Computed example of a mutant assay.
Amino acid sequence: MTNTAPTTDLDRVIGFTIPGRHTRGRVARLGPVLDEILSAHAYPEQIERLLAEALTLTALLGSTLKQAEGQMTLQAQTQGGIVSLLVCDYKNGELRGYVQFDALRLSQLGKNPSLFALFHKGHLAITFDQATTKERYQGIVPLDAGSLAEAAQSYFLQSEQIPSLVRLGARRDRETGKWIGGGLFLQHLPEGEAGRERLHVRLDHPEWQHVEALGSTMGVDELADAAIPLESLIWRLFNEEEEVRVLSGADLARGCRCDPGYITGVLAKFPEEERAAMADEAGVIAVDCVFCSKKFPVKLADFVPPPL
């Protein structure tokens, strides 16, 4: 395995396989992308850390899509929780995300609240939308794990019967003070991609136990260290394996898909009287994007058809 990664390795995700262990994996690290997304909101530190980990998880899972125009969405929702809604999505290397929360109740917690303290009783939904076939795959698991990483592992075990390991971490860079998120995603495929049915996967397979034990040693400091190339992380874990194949990766970027044309098109689908009810006294509909916090004023006059 040749190390060709940049000196500062940020906003990138790569895949790899370990044929002799019937294992596939992904490793990702986010930097400026996180800063762009988080800077659009005045989130407190607890929410920034939560969203940073969620976006890293979204990059890991979304990059497994085989079709570039496919979309993966991660949504955590609760009833009565401090965090009422968390949404992230991935499409063709672009990420976006936001969080709705009760600021007053959050202020009463410490700096490192547990997942249960933030969400109480809720669920995590992971959805894969295929671009070409238009098929949708969704799995929902309760948010009763200790972390988002553990909740994602439960999703793959319950929804797809695939033993998986997810490691996530986010911390502020010591020099810049900006967030860096890193993640590792491993899956066991006992007979390879085209192997036996997933329902028959043995969770106690010694090959998987070996890989899982190695992957579990990867800590936050390594995952979120921009000076360590992603290829080096893989090498540190699996350098004693007979063969490790590093696959092509993807660059990551912030990508909010809101624009005036799209918003006007959505509003045009509403009846004229409903659009009028949305507008202010000046005849302007103010549309806010929850992802990027931008405001888009749309005039009612824009919907008037041209004279014949």
Rank of each mutant, 00 (worst) to 15 (best):
K299H: 08
L109R: 00
R21T: 00
N3I: 13
A226W: 07
Y98M: 01
L189M: 10
V27F: 05
R136G: 01
A286E: 13
D144K: 11
E94I: 00
F238M: 11
I162S: 13
I82V: 09
A145T: 08
A253N: 14
Q161F: 12
S114P: 01
E36K: 13
D302N: 09
L74P: 01
Q153E: 15
F119N: 00
P271K: 07
K121H: 11
L106S: 02
L104I: 01
T217G: 07
Y262M: 14
R171W: 03
V166D: 07
I234K: 11
D173G: 07
A253M: 13
Q161R: 13
G25Q: 06
S232W: 08
A152Y: 10
G62D: 00
K178Q: 12
Q187P: 04
S39F: 06
L85M: 06
D144R: 12
A28V: 09
C258I: 07
L184G: 04
R174N: 11
R245L: 15
E274T: 14
A28K: 03
I228H: 12
F116E: 05
I18Q: 06
G169R: 09
L74A: 05
K269E: 14
G31M: 05
R257Y: 13
P271I: 07
E274W: 06
Q158Y: 13
L300M: 05
